[in-house]
Design a protein around this nucleic acid. Sequence first.
DNA 1: CGGATTTGACCAGCGC
DNA 2: GCGCTGGTCAAATCCG
Length: 326
Amino acid sequence: MSNETKDFNNYHTSSYNHYNINNQNMINVPYVSSPSTYNANMISSSQLGFDLPSKNLSPHGAYGLGFEISPSSSEFFNTSINQENGLYNAYNYNSSHKSHEVVGGGGATIESETRVSASPSSSEADHRPGEDSGKSLRKREAVDGGEDDQPSQKLVKTKKKEEKKQKEPRVSFMTKTEVDHLEDGYRWRKYGQKAVKNSPYPRSYYRCTTQKCNVKKRVERSYQDPTVVITTYESQHNHPLPTNRRTGMFSGSAASDCNPTVPSPIFSDLINNTPRSYSHDDLFRVPYASVNVNPSYHQQHQEFHNENEFELLKEMFPSVFFKQEP
DNA sequence: CGGATTTGACCAGCGC
DNA sequence: GCGCTGGTCAAATCCG
């Protein structure tokens, strides 16, 4: 049993406060299908109904590995993979503090890291109208006749800076998959691709095609382990999953599950330690093949600091939380 | 033909 | 100030 680990670098996330979930409370996500044993701490993959490797796990052959919700662009997180377990340990590198913070567990435990953070203040609505910063904004300024309007230009600049400060919450996760762009139920339009420093693999930029939805995602392949794709979601969808995607998958409670106020059935089960069966099809896009949740939900829940973080997680991965009716 | 992708250019932020 | 890098735009191109 080798404990070989690989480090992943260049995971840029944003920089809000982040909250660590310790080994007791974190969601553990080994991507390998484990025996269907069930104890107080572990809900096995088979109990969750996604015996990925043995079935047609996904059209893309994707294994979920781990995810992070992270907030900011000035914050790095490095993640190491335990190849034996197929697990990732996350490190957080806060560039502003020039320090590494070991977020992940590691060692012999079959666990990976989940670090959860959320934007404390930046409200979705505040950002939607602007859609994105940068060029479009600059162009709009010009079009709106900014030339002779110095004061308003200054105002816009200040506003721009403020907007930049309030970064959208981001969720990053790694998926072992052959394809770069994983199906997650939403419709995306690619709007850019960039070469990544120190990596032979480019980073792709996607934007949700739904009108007025500001969600973006970046997809890049790990240069350390080319079989791993790192996906970073930014912001939250303000609409339900497109219903015409993958027949049947998003019917029923899909819309309500997208509503941050509606508790997720799956997550409820997990946090209540109530194993249920979900089809692998529902979960093939899940960033993990199995989820380990500490039974003491309340304790765990506190680690999220507030409901929003929990909800953000659900929002980011609605498919994770969908329950497929038998 | 309309929507999605590709790709070169542009800009902002950051470190030196 | 300069160079580097990440992020985005938008025209060109592709594709169903």
